[in-house]
Write a protein that binds this DNA or RNA. Structure first.
Length: 589
RNA sequence: GGCUCCGUAGCUCAGUCGGUUUAGAGCGCUGGCCUGUCACGCCAGAGGUCGCGGGUUCAAGUCCCGUCGGAGUCGCCA
């Protein structure tokens, strides 16, 4: 080792010791006589003092270093005078009085200082990610990510799970997300697909007798990015055999309690709350509601049915619903202009309008209040448990639209009105999802979760009559409004599996071609099995209060899926393409 | 693919209604001074393709169109 101690570990107890530390120059204060250098490593910062009495050579060298130079410094740890103690940093009671300095490497003038109080724009941070990653905040996040990952591994190890790696180069399967493809040199015209998840492999591991599997698995999906979505991301992938839904829920409940204990030092109450998909959509308009606050959706169809407002009546007459929510105390916080913005916002979710009522001491105040008699107004106030100063929003539309629009509005208002404690972690299970959803555009049924999800046994009769009614044995763990985990009991009966493929419109021969290895495996003694996958990046986000997934990934990609540090993706040599039998057909500009 | 926001010095930003001449400030940078600072201080200085292209205008950082890049979001994400 070039050093005897890290910068961040030095304390008063080291006084009088001669130490050697290495690190980056965080800042330099040259007094002409005394030179102070704050030396930084990932453990912290320590102040080095260069005194002219140590000779001109050392002093001149110390004066010549610049920010982000890499130094090796030897010196004696000395206690600072009382008045010179810096209580803002853990090493503030001591200095290292240097008698030897080696510049291990110089640095160009950096485009931004890792020690800066407000970091620059993200484009620059990503281009110079090595500087960004020197920032204490990012180092903190990387350390936390390591720790969370380690705790997860520890938990599953203690419960007898085996970590088994599955291939990155796999077979492209239909449905699901767009695959990232990797051309095969040996098989011209053929491609591997990077895994969207290790789904089929882990099921085959169950069939192979590895009844408790886990993997910290990298997954790839070629879809557009979001604040919480990257094209490559990490799942904690889990599968168990000889279990039912309850076993998976309890296993993950236990993980949550373990993590909350280890990370937050709190005893999280178990079991985690459970609600059905139908209930969640009804009360919150979303299958991943943020349950740190209430503001539940209410139906006022019965009240609206008799009102004089045509928009509401027409919506009801055409099979729609009239639902809304109450933003408590928000009447004065939203101007007419801001409400207009919210109207545009719900328009993104196909809502044709957004009605509102300001609640006053005497009733409702709104451009449409005149369509509601005193009794109707009181009924609305009562339905929303409203009082003066509240602001009620109503959407009248097709049922799905009211859920989507109000669910999104609830989420936005929750943030804008700061209805939750950002440090709180709220976990809840969403159960009984529909197995299929009807795709209006393509006039076909789609799997809501994935095609290997077992139907609730009681519902299999609906395959022929009403597939939309079939419930799935799937479950999502919702954390603070994010989908934190998702899984299901799998199909282990090849006959049921075939039924699902049939309904999804995957012809038998097609299914046989694409999934033959799974279908074949199912025929050789498949145990009942179930599993789940946790979005590790999102869990790191939630535990650290980040609002963006890029901050918890060392080398993330931009919204256009580019890596600004390396310049990926890039063109490749004609020779490489030729070896792969690939010709580029660029789209016309 | 759609919608919205952003792009001015290395960085963070200001720049009014389109018109004050040479587009400013702080930080950083360069040089000088400074022996207890810790966002050190003081003095002096350098540093600009106003993302790029086109248009409107007597006049464009400012208005319009396009484009590139970044961000958010809808679609998409079994």
């Amino acid at each position: 080792m070039l050093r005897t101690h890290t910068c961040g570990e030095l304390r008063a107890e080291h006084v009088d010791q001669t130490v050697t530390v290495c690190g980056w120059v965080d800042s330099r204060r040259d007094h002409g006589g005394l030179v102070f250098i704050d030396l930084r490593d990932r453990y912290g910062k320590v102040q080095i003092v260069f005194d002219p009495s140590q000779g001109d050579d050392l002093h001149n060298l110390a004066g010549s270093v610049r920010n982000e130079y890499v130094l090796k410094v030897t010196g004696k740890v000395v206690r600072r005078a009382e008045k010179d103690v810096n209580p803002k940093i853990p090493t503030g009671e001591i200095d290292v009085r240097s008698n030897h300095l080696e510049v291990l490497n110089a640095s160009r003038v950096v485009p931004f200082e890792p020690g800066t109080l407000n970091p620059p724009n993200e484009e620059l941070r990503l281009k110079y990610r090595f500087l960004d990653l020197r920032r204490p905040r990012l180092q903190e996040l990387m350390v936390f990510r390591h720790r969370l990952t380690k705790l997860v591994r520890d938990y599953f190890d203690r419960h007898g799970f085996l970590e088994i790696e599955t291939p990155m180069l796999g077979r492209s399967t239909p449905e699901g997300a767009r695959d990232y493809l990797v051309p095969s040199r040996v098989h011209p015209g053929c491609f591997y697909a990077l895994p969207q998840s290790p789904q089929i492999y882990k099921q085959i591991l169950m069939i192979a007798g590895y009844d408790r599997y886990m993997q910290i698995a990298r997954c790839f999906r070629d879809e557009d990015l979001r604040a919480d979505r990257q094209p490559e991301f990490t799942q904690v992938d889990i599968e168990m055999a000889f279990v039912d839904r309850e076993d998976i829920l309890q296993t993950v409940d236990g993980l949550v309690a373990f993590l909350m204990q280890e990370i937050r030092g709190v005893q999280h109450p178990l079991p985690l709350p459970r609600l059905t998909y139908a209930e969640s959509m009804e009360r919150f308009g979303s299958d991943k509601p943020d349950l740190r606050y209430g503001m539940e959706l209410k139906d006022i169809g019965d009240i609206a049915a008799n009102c004089g407002f045509g928009v509401f009546k027409n919506a009801l007459a055409s099979g729609g619903r009239v639902r809304g929510l109450n933003a408590v105390g928000a009447a004065a916080k939203y101007s007419r202009k801001q409400i207009d913005e919210l109207t545009v916002f719900v328009g993104d979710f196909k809502a044709k309008g957004l009605a509102f009522f300001r609640v006053t001491e005497t009733g409702l105040d709104s451009p449409i209040a005149k369509f509601f008699g005193p009794e109707e107004q009181q009924a609305i106030i009562q339905r929303f448990d409203a009082k003066a100063g509240d602001l009620i929003f109503i959407v009248a539309d097709q049922p799905k639209v009211t859920s989507a629009a109000l669910g999104a509005l609830r989420s936005r208002l929750g943030k804008e009105l700061a209805l939750f404690d950002p440090n709180e972690m709220h976990f809840a299970w969403i159960l009984d999802f529909p197995l299929f959803s009807y795709n209006e555009e393509e006039k076909k049924w789609d799997a809501e979760h994935h095609p290997f999800c077992n139907p609730v046994p009681d519902d299999v009769g609906y395959f022929e009559t009403d597939p939309g009614k079939i419930r799935a044995t799937s479950y999502d763990l919702v954390v603070n409004g994010y989908e934190g985990a998702s899984g299901s009991v799998r199909i282990h009966d090849p006959v049921v599996q075939q039924k699902v493929f049939d309904l999804l419109g995957i012809p038998a021969e097609e299914a046989e071609k694409r999934f033959s290895f799974l279908l074949e495996a199912l025929r050789y003694g498949a145990p009942p099995h179930a599993g789940i996958a946790l979005g590790l990046d999102r869990w790191v986000m939630m535990f650290t209060g980040c609002d963006n997934i890029r901050d918890v990934i060392a080398f993330p990609k931009t919204q256009k899926a580019a890596d600004l540090l390396s310049g990926a993706p890039s063109n490749v040599d004609a020779k490489q393409l030729k070896e792969l039998s690939i010709k580029i057909d660029e789209p016309k500009a």
